[in-house]
Simulated scan of single mutants.
Amino acid sequence: MIKKIINIVRKKILESKSYSIFILKNNFDFLIKKIFEEINEIIISLQKYKIYKNCYNRYFLIKEICDLLYHIIIFIIYNNFSLFEIEKEFFRRTRISGKKEKKNR
C-alpha cells in the first residue's frame, strides 16, 4: 500500500503546479513545519472524536491522518530514502521486542 501511495505522489510531482512540487522546491524547514502542523491537527481531531464518537469526527480524523502520511511520504522522497531501507528497518524490528529496540537506540 505504501508503495502505491508513494507512486501516486511521485506522479503528482511531475505536474509543475502540484502542491507536492511546491513543497519539494521549498526548504526542508517548510516540510518539517507541515509535518508538525499535521500532527497537531490529528491531536485536535482525535480529542473531538474521543468526545463525540460519530462518523463526522471520525472522517476528519482520517483526513488528518492522510495529510500526515502524505507529508511523511514527501519527506521520504525529499530525503531520497528507499522503501527497501524502510522495509528492512521494519523487518529488523519484528525480530526484537519494543523495549529492547528502544534500549538499543
Rank of each mutant, 00 (worst) to 15 (best):
35 I>W: 00
54 N>V: 09
65 I>P: 00
82 S>M: 01
10 R>G: 01
77 I>G: 10
21 I>T: 06
38 E>Q: 08
48 K>V: 07
74 I>V: 13
59 Y>G: 00
40 N>Q: 07
63 K>L: 12
61 L>A: 11
74 I>S: 00
44 I>Q: 07
49 Y>K: 02
96 I>T: 11
60 F>P: 04
50 K>N: 11
74 I>D: 00
52 Y>D: 12
10 R>A: 12
69 L>V: 10
103 K>N: 14
39 I>R: 03
94 T>D: 03
5 I>P: 00
67 D>R: 01
94 T>I: 02
88 K>C: 08
22 F>E: 07
102 K>Q: 11
34 K>D: 06
89 E>P: 02
95 R>Q: 07
93 R>N: 10
22 F>L: 06
49 Y>P: 01
90 F>E: 09
104 N>A: 14
29 D>G: 13
64 E>T: 04
32 I>H: 02
42 I>L: 10
69 L>G: 10
4 K>Q: 10
101 E>K: 15
61 L>K: 06
16 S>F: 12
80 N>G: 00
102 K>D: 11
72 I>R: 00
34 K>S: 06
50 K>P: 01
54 N>L: 08
88 K>M: 06
85 E>T: 13
29 D>A: 07
85 E>L: 12
92 R>D: 10
61 L>S: 06
8 I>R: 15
58 R>A: 10
27 N>I: 03
43 I>P: 04
39 I>N: 09
76 I>Q: 02
54 N>D: 15
51 I>M: 06
50 K>W: 08
